[in-house]
């Protein structure tokens, strides 16, 4: 039994590595065979995948249904706007991603810690409401404090980063180079998050999702773990927000608005929560569908709604969850 399980685990692991290397190769080769527009779609999909994966940590793995995740997404985008843009508002600290990225991580980390420590005290629907409230608060600040945030106009002129080590410099200005940067961050994120959810810490989070009271009586400081999960997820969301702002050269309060959280939530639910791959599929669908269908019908949102209702009613584990269920059934 022992040995068998061990070999199964090993098998899964090697499968994962193969899958990962195949997808990395595809991602690296893709630009050579696709046009500029496809690349821009890929960049968006990858950025929103990172965003959706970060929410999956919270919803899928820790069981905290946040509707305020756009707060960190938006925060990341605004922080990079302050750090490095041609706008008069900017402080112009540096264009070097080795400097800006840690600042974004630190700032979104602190913010998500502060919000997290308060929000995780609420459960279920109340957690949802409290995260929503925090996000709407930031949204309202972003609109009203226009001398700092640019108000509803947003902030333009956000620069794409470069990477400077000594005299050696890489520019991510062109779309293709920015694409490679996003691909790199995407894979680093997926590897890190995969490591996290499969570690003892990940087990702890899943234990909390499954049965919080039991975790307490086993001696787990549940609030501490929830906060940690909230911070990890907030930071990753912040990074994705930063990337989107750099890609668009722009950020606006729309990035903090609750519909952005809603979008991520749909990506997670649609793709399948607690899978990491699910949110990526969800993000792909959500970003591609309007693009494919809205030229044909302006009612793509209604179709999306129908799909979502179907998923929630008949495939509660989302696309990935349902497929893996079918596969495992066939194996039996």
């Amino acid at each position: 039994m022992n040995l068998k399980q061990h070999s199964i685990e090993k098998n899964i692991l090697s499968n994962k590595i193969i899958l990962l290397s195949i997808s990395i190769t595809i991602m690296l080769v893709l630009p050579t065979v696709s046009n500029n527009y496809i690349i821009s779609l890929l960049i968006e999909i990858l950025i929103f995948s990172i965003f959706a994966m970060s929410l999956d940590i919270l919803i899928g793995y820790t069981g905290l249904p946040s509707l305020g995740h756009s707060a960190f997404f938006g925060l990341g985008s605004y922080i990079i706007a302050f750090l490095n843009s041609t706008n008069a508002i900017a402080l112009n600290v540096s264009q070097n991603i080795l400097i800006t990225l840690p600042i974004v991580i630190l700032a979104t980390g602190i913010m998500s810690f502060v919000i997290g420590i308060i929000a995780i005290r609420a459960k279920g629907i109340y957690f949802l409401m409290i995260t929503l409230a925090f996000a709407q608060m930031l949204y309202s600040i972003s609109i009203r404090w226009s001398s700092v945030t640019g108000g509803s106009d947003g902030i333009t002129g956000i620069l794409r980063p470069n990477l400077v080590i000594g005299s050696w410099m890489l520019q991510f200005d062109s779309r293709i180079s920015f694409y490679y940067l996003v691909v790199a961050i995407f894979f680093i994120t997926i590897i890190l998050l995969n490591q996290i959810v499969n570690s003892p810490f990940g087990n702890t989070l899943q234990g909390i999702k499954s049965n919080q009271q039991r975790m307490l009586s086993l001696g787990y400081n549940v609030n501490w773990y929830k906060t940690a999960s909230f911070v990890i997820s907030g930071v990753v969301a912040g990074i994705s927000g930063m990337l989107l702002a750099q890609f668009y050269w722009f950020t606006s309060p729309e990035n903090i608005y609750w519909t952005m959280s809603g979008q991520a939530l749909i990506m997670v639910v649609l793709g399948g929560n607690a899978t990491l791959i699910g949110p990526i599929i969800g993000a792909t669908l959500m970003r591609l569908l309007p693009n494919v269908t809205s030229s044909i019908t302006i009612y793509w949102q209604s179709y999306m709604g129908l799909i979502l209702i179907a998923v929630v009613l008949y495939a509660r584990n989302g696309i990935v969850g349902t497929i893996s269920k079918i596969i495992s059934k066939n194996h039996e």
């Binding site: 570690s199 003892p200 810490f201 087990n203 702890t204 499954s210 049965n211 039991r214």
Partner: peptide
């Protein structure tokens, strides 16, 4: 009963054990 319903029996025990060995916060093992 107050178990981790969506986990296997051994996973239930493992979760208790990783607290006992104080590794519940580790992201590598």
């Amino acid at each position: 009963t107050n178990l981790f319903d969506d986990m296997t029996t051994i996973e239930n025990i493992k979760i208790a054990l990783q607290q006992q060995y104080d590794i519940g916060y580790k992201i590598t093992q």
